[in-house]
Design a protein around this nucleic acid. Sequence first.
DNA 1: TTATTACTCACTCAAATGAGGGATTGACAC
DNA 2: GTGTCAATCCCTCATTTGAGTGAGTAATAA
Lengths: 179, 179
Amino acid sequence: MVGEYNNCNDATTITRVYKPDVVLMDIDMPGESGINGVRYVKEARPQTSVIMYTVFEDDEKLFQCLCSGANGYLLKQTPPQKLFDGIQEVIAGGSPMSPVIARKVLNSFQHGKSNKYFLSSREIEVLQLLIKGYSAKMIAADLNISFDTARSHLKNIYQKLHVNSGKEAIGKALGEHIV
Amino acid sequence: MVGEYNNCNDATTITRVYKPDVVLMDIDMPGESGINGVRYVKEARPQTSVIMYTVFEDDEKLFQCLCSGANGYLLKQTPPQKLFDGIQEVIAGGSPMSPVIARKVLNSFQHGKSNKYFLSSREIEVLQLLIKGYSAKMIAADLNISFDTARSHLKNIYQKLHVNSGKEAIGKALGEHIV
DNA sequence: TTATTACTCACTCAAATGAGGGATTGACAC
DNA sequence: GTGTCAATCCCTCATTTGAGTGAGTAATAA
């Protein structure tokens, strides 16, 4: 145990000086958020494992932490023995997660194909080609339909997605995992 | 224990008939792959929890399983007690994962920002606006530069990304996690 | 039967785009 | 002090695109 702090403002230098094997990081702290804290620690010393240890099971915060490089995510309700297990596990190269968190993480892989904009199957075909970078002309050739029909489909897709251009449609489709 | 099968060809009907709480699913089986097996079970009865139980720790297979809806992923080297724990955990709404798997899953969140195409910081700014669906004119306004400069940046970006249109650039940028 | 919907095709027009050319400035490296 | 490069700006041209409007057919639902 090399230290204990009530904020992570000096996380970079502390990490450089003490070279900890494991850091337990809270999210809600005075000053800098623990989400940035993860980043500081990881940038200062990538080998250091960071376990988020917090009350939050908020989706947005969770994914920000994971994207920032956290190696584990335990809720504060975790019994002490499980916390020790988690620390051992992260040293051994694992990624301890509270059950609820693990479920959220896996769920994030399964968000695919919502189609909440009610695109027809033909429209989905067209959208997929559009995402591949095809022009209206190429889409028409690929689907053996006329140029104007392809454009017609595109216009309908834009309407359903509430966008005004192919670029926006691609951004929305990829961003919201529509296809 | 309602059944045990050496393939998952009839997974749909079996699931409908026996309504299992939990399914342990292997990947490598005669006939249909367990990756499709997950899908069959989940489509037949979404409430049924599926734990992958296999020797594979292959990245590609892992992510296919997760995307297909698996609720857990335990390696066959898992000690029996941990396997029982995992079954309890999945029933309680958790997602049991072997440490190696958990680590791979978390790593998949951290693949961001490669910039293997050596975009300048200004070009990244422009690309981010492009992805938001901005036109050249809007990008120019947003960055307080002239219309032609914005177009100039866009052309350079397209060259670096080896694409010929904004749509392709967006697809590539989002697909390869460049930004 | 009537409506609705998906899919198909056509035409027009103004605006945006991609591709080509060239030019200046300032910073930084060798 | 020469060279490189990012960033800025300008011009032209053919093509593509988005938006508007209309219309025919086939399948499905009310």
